[in-house]
Amino acid sequence: MALRTVGRRRSRGGLLPERDLSIFDPMVLGINEFGAAVRVLLIYRNILIGGEPGGGKSSLLNLIVAYAAVCLDCTLVLLDGKQVELGQWEACAQAFVGPDIDGALQVLQRLQIVMDNRYRWLRWHLRRKIKPGDSFRPIVLAIDEIAYYSATVLDKAKREMFSALLRDLVARGRAIGIIVAAATQRPSSDIIPTSLRDLFAWRASFRTTNDSSSDIVLGHGWANQGWTANAISPTNQGAALLIAEGGVPGLIKVAWLDDGECAAIAAYAAELRGLLEEAGPRPKLTVVAA
């Protein structure tokens, strides 16, 4: 499925979209079995992506990051255990961490502080969640290869701290605009505990090697009802089962961006974000957003 180029208009210093994209609007992930566009709303939600290597999970994660990058009303924070899956978007991100558990922990701890500060702000203003036009922007936290941080690092205490911090952000961050999009190529219970998986409103499972791995992503019992990512053909890359909170899995074909397209969108988004910074400073992760 190809993506069409967004219409643009000329502006001082560069190009801007005809209509600003917003993280508060639904984004297109791909098409369903009938060829209709599949749209998901990420704000106030999170998405978990799993599957075997080569199934297409990184394509979906890059698609989400690409959309977030050109939404000027959100901030990008990227954790990438392999460095290269999300590396093209580094210039668009406020923070980028590679295979560095200490750096990842520092970023998650800062996000936790931001989360608490934002909830304090909402309490002061007698509100329960953020909305468009607030003085702070939603934050998209994209993590590729959770397993590196939660299972591969030798220091057990740091692995457990990473999992605890991530669970807290997924559990409490929705209302204040922290959107977690996390992917792993080896879905197992030690990497994605049930208590963490069930907090993700959206879950996408690309092909898995067995029914158990499919259920780890989608939820227990779906394989027995005939919904298993193990049934997806190895040659059908980009196909996944997508389930929404309280819903039923559905087969989708995820839109695909090649390296050249990702690089072009990333450069365009970095230019747009540069123009945005010229218009005025924005709060950093370590600043109380008010």
Rank of each mutant, 00 (worst) to 15 (best):
K129R: 09
K82F: 11
E90N: 02
D80G: 05
D155N: 14
K129I: 01
F136P: 01
R118N: 03
G87W: 03
Y119L: 12
Q109V: 13
R120F: 02
C92H: 02
Q94R: 15
Q106T: 13
R159M: 08
P99R: 08
W121D: 09
L122C: 10
M161I: 12
R110V: 06
L154T: 14
D168S: 15
E160H: 00
A91W: 04
R172P: 02
Q106G: 08
A157F: 07
L166K: 00
G81M: 03
R118T: 00
F162T: 05
A171Y: 10
M161E: 15
D144P: 01
V170S: 15
Q83F: 12
K158S: 14
L165H: 11
L122E: 07
Y148P: 01
A69H: 05
E90D: 04
V114R: 13
W124F: 09
W89S: 02
V77H: 07
R172K: 09
D80L: 11
D100C: 10
N117S: 09
L141W: 00
W124A: 14
F96S: 01
M115I: 04
D168W: 11
G81Y: 06
A104R: 09
T75G: 02
S163E: 15
W89K: 02
V140A: 06
G98N: 04
E90Q: 02
V140Y: 03
L111A: 07
L108V: 06
R159L: 08
A95R: 13
A164R: 15
L169H: 10
Q112T: 11
F136G: 04
N117R: 12
L108P: 00
R118M: 01
G133M: 13
V84L: 10
W121E: 12
Q109N: 14
Y119S: 04
P132F: 06
E145Q: 06
L79N: 06
C74V: 04
G133W: 14
D168Y: 13
R137W: 07
G173T: 15
D100E: 12
L79Q: 09
D144L: 01
K156R: 12
V153H: 10
A157Y: 09
F162P: 00
G98H: 05
S135K: 05
G173V: 14
D102N: 08
Q109T: 15
E160N: 11
R118P: 00
L141N: 06
V84Q: 08
R110W: 00
L76A: 02
L122W: 08
N117D: 12
Q83H: 06
F136S: 03
R174L: 14
L165P: 07
S150M: 08
Q112M: 02
T75P: 00
L154M: 11
I146W: 05
E145H: 04
R110F: 00
Q83M: 10
L105A: 11
L111C: 03
A93S: 15
A93T: 08
I143W: 01
V77A: 09
W89Q: 03
G173N: 15
T75K: 15
D80E: 06
K82A: 10
V170M: 15
A147Y: 00
R174F: 04
A147P: 07
G81V: 05
C74Y: 07
R159I: 10
T152V: 10
A93V: 12
A95Q: 12
Y148L: 06
G98V: 03
Y148V: 02
G173K: 15
N117P: 00
E145A: 07
W89H: 03
W124G: 15
D116S: 09
W124Y: 04
F136Q: 01
A104G: 15
